[in-house]
């Protein structure tokens, strides 16, 4: 019988290098920016986002969906947005999208008796179930979730954004920016994943047939920009005419898109649409408290 050499045996015996206990592990508090204020509920949650940025003395997420949900969580829990030395037990945390169960952020990490990680799908579902009873508000919310997300994904895919912008938005490794090969490889790999967000590639398989000279994806994006502009205008009118709680939640969600696009994607076609709604953009920035 074949004898396993001692070196190989020792190597395999050394695995696992570290034993991870089954106990409740705590999130590393160093990376968490806590909301300010005290909530009535004892719930403890952390929203994991792509990256964070400083807006005045506030810390906010960089991508539109995370920013929208940070505003909603802050509003619902009667907190104010995170600062460097926030006092509550809830907060936001930048992490790699590869750490998410489905390779996309945000995810909500609830740390009560048991840790519960909620993906965007569950967060959206819970928001509608617990807060929306008006049929009209549900329809508008679903339009934002579906169409705004799609057009944002298309903007990332089509606009050929500099690596620096992608790095700021999604927390990609900044240190490799000077190395062309590593930078382009990382960018290509990342954009391949972006196409899968919101199941965009799956819902539009014909746009990704690349063996012809026509750039279907770019053409589709250009047509969708016009639709986004029209829908945004209608939603702004809807929000100006309704001030109930459900409309406020939708406004926070839309504000996430407006602020993030204004800060990072201003030079894009999507940015042009957002900037053209100056008054509403101003109202969105007013929500950052």
């Amino acid at each position: 019988m074949l004898q396993v050499p001692q070196t190989i045996k020792t190597f395999f015996d050394a695995v696992p290098v570290k034993n991870i206990s089954n106990d409740h592990t705590k999130l590393d508090d160093i990376n968490i920016y806590h909301f300010q204020g005290t909530s009535n509920s004892q719930a403890k949650f952390t929203l994991a986002v792509f990256n964070t940025t400083q807006e005045g003395d506030l810390i906010i997420p960089t991508d539109p969906i995370s920013l929208g949900y940070t505003l909603i969580l802050s509003h619902k829990s009667k907190f104010t947005l995170p600062k460097e030395n926030g006092s509550s037990n809830c907060g936001i945390m930048a992490m790699s999208h590869l750490g998410s169960p489905n390779n996309v952020l945000p995810v909500l990490i609830e740390d009560d008796n048991l840790r519960n990680i909620k993906t965007l799908d569950s967060i959206n579902h819970d928001l509608i179930e617990n807060n929306f009873d008006s049929h009209e508000a549900k329809l508008v919310n679903s339009l934002v979730d579906s169409k705004f997300y799609d057009v944002w994904v298309q903007c990332i895919l089509n606009e050929d954004l500099p690596y620096k912008v992608l790095s700021e938005l999604f927390g990609l490794d900044e240190t490799i920016e000077g190395n062309v090969v590593l930078r382009e490889t990382q960018k290509y790999e990342f954009l391949t994943q972006v196409a899968n967000w919101n199941s965009f590639k799956l819902r539009h398989p014909t746009l990704f047939e690349q063996w012809t000279r026509t750039n279907y994806l770019k053409n589709y994006y250009e047509s969708q920009i016009g639709e986004f502009a029209k829908d945004l205008q209608l939603i702004i009118e809807y929000l100006n005419n309704n001030s109930d709680e459900q409309s406020t939640l939708i406004k926070h969600k839309v504000a996430g898109y407006m602020i993030s696009i204004d800060k990072f994607l201003k030079s894009t076609k999507l940015g042009d649409v957002v900037v053209s709604q100056g008054e509403f953009l101003h109202q969105c920035y007013d929500l950052l408290v």
């Binding site: 799908d121 959206n124 799956l202």
Partner: peptide, 23 residues
Amino acid sequence: VAQVKLLGLSKNKTSFFDFTTTF
């Protein structure tokens, strides 16, 4: 067949906002 998985209409269930397993 890939698209119907979005609504859970297949053997391998995925959700509408599932971004990875669908592929």
